[in-house]
């Protein structure tokens, strides 16, 4: 077992009287795709900013790529890649100029710079658009260039802050393929997201809520630990059914998916049985048990915390 690439102990950050992040202890292994989940304002970005060495922690400690967060922040910056929430390209520079600029900023030696930029252009399929202004690219392409810029210096650790916000599903899928390709080549990826389907694509997850770490583990572990069971029902009157089910202590959550009602229970109760008891067998047209997802676990945790 090698040493983790990120390790923190009781990392905290206060802004005045507001505690943005409290006591976060986590460890991320090399080559992992690690997802940080949480609602807006939960402290995800603050955590990332501390891990990047641009925000000093007000408590706790940690190491990133082997350097201490508090004392060696500058060394960390050289060895990580970071893509901000909005893919911050220079829209009035061409694709190639953007890559060239970031290669220079991240200290890719001058002699290798040209070769590196060419290689990245070819690998990411950007050769045809090399001289196009970044501002004229579509969202998916912009994101590809941004990712290429953030990894131009081949960092061992890559941070992505909500990388897929506002990107269409097809581009998102391509993007995730690229992320796994990067991870397979040995780069650790830490990203934040609030798309739950993306969460399931991560090797491991951390749930942050109101500045605190609620749980960490593989998606399967997190779902299992929450102990949820799910049934999907179709009923005559979904609204009325939701009302009569609501408030029952064993029911964790009821949500509408079109004509389907999704019923989640906690503590082992069988949701199908519960529905039959509460609504009467005649009110239910179909009913079958479904797999609990990361989203179920996340909503459950967020609601009960």
């Amino acid at each position: 077992m090698t040493t983790p690439i990120i390790q923190t102990e009781h990392l905290s950050r206060r802004f005045g009287s507001l505690v943005a992040v409290r006591d976060i202890s986590l460890s991320v292994d090399k080559g992992e795709v690690f997802g940080v989940l949480g609602p807006n304002g939960a402290g995800k970005s603050t955590t990332i900013r501390m891990l990047c060495g641009i925000l000093d922690p007000s408590g706790g400690r940690g190491t990133v790529v082997g350097y201490d967060l508090a004392t060696e922040a500058e060394r960390i910056k050289e060895r990580i890649g970071y893509m901000t929430q909005r893919f911050s390209l220079y829209e009035d520079l061409t694709v190639r100029e953007n890559l060239w600029f970031y290669a220079g900023i991240y200290g890719v030696p001058w002699r290798q710079r040209k070769a590196r930029v060419e290689e990245v252009l070819t690998r990411t399929g950007l050769q045809d658009r090399r001289d196009q202004l970044a501002g004229t690219l579509s969202g998916g392409w912009k994101q590809r260039v941004a990712l290429a810029s953030a990894t131009i210096h081949e960092p061992p650790l890559l941070f992505l802050d909500e990388p897929t916000a506002g990107v269409d599903p097809v581009s998102r899928r391509d993007f995730w393929e690229e992320i796994h390709r990067i991870a397979a080549s040995g780069t650790t990826v830490l990203l934040t997201t609030h798309y739950m389907d993306e969460a399931e694509r991560c090797h491991r997850l951390a749930f942050i809520f109101k500045g605190e770490l609620l749980d960490t583990g593989t998606p399967a572990q997190i779902v299992e630990r929450r102990g949820l069971r799910v049934a999907e029902l179709t009923v005559d009157d979904a609204e009325a059914a939701a009302r009569s089910l609501g408030g029952h202590p064993e029911i964790d959550e009821i949500s509408h998916y079109g004509h389907v009602l999704r019923l989640t229970t906690r503590g082992g109760a069988d949701p199908a049985e519960l529905a039959t008891t509460l609504l009467g067998p005649r009110a239910i047209q179909t009913c079958h048990e479904a797999r609990a997802t990361v989203e179920d676990a996340f909503v459950s945790m967020a609601r009960r915390s």
Partner: peptide
């Protein structure tokens, strides 16, 4: 405004 400053701040510049 465009968010590129943040990108530079996290770089070793």
């Amino acid at each position: 405004e465009r968010g590129t400053l943040e990108q530079l701040v996290v770089s070793p510049v």
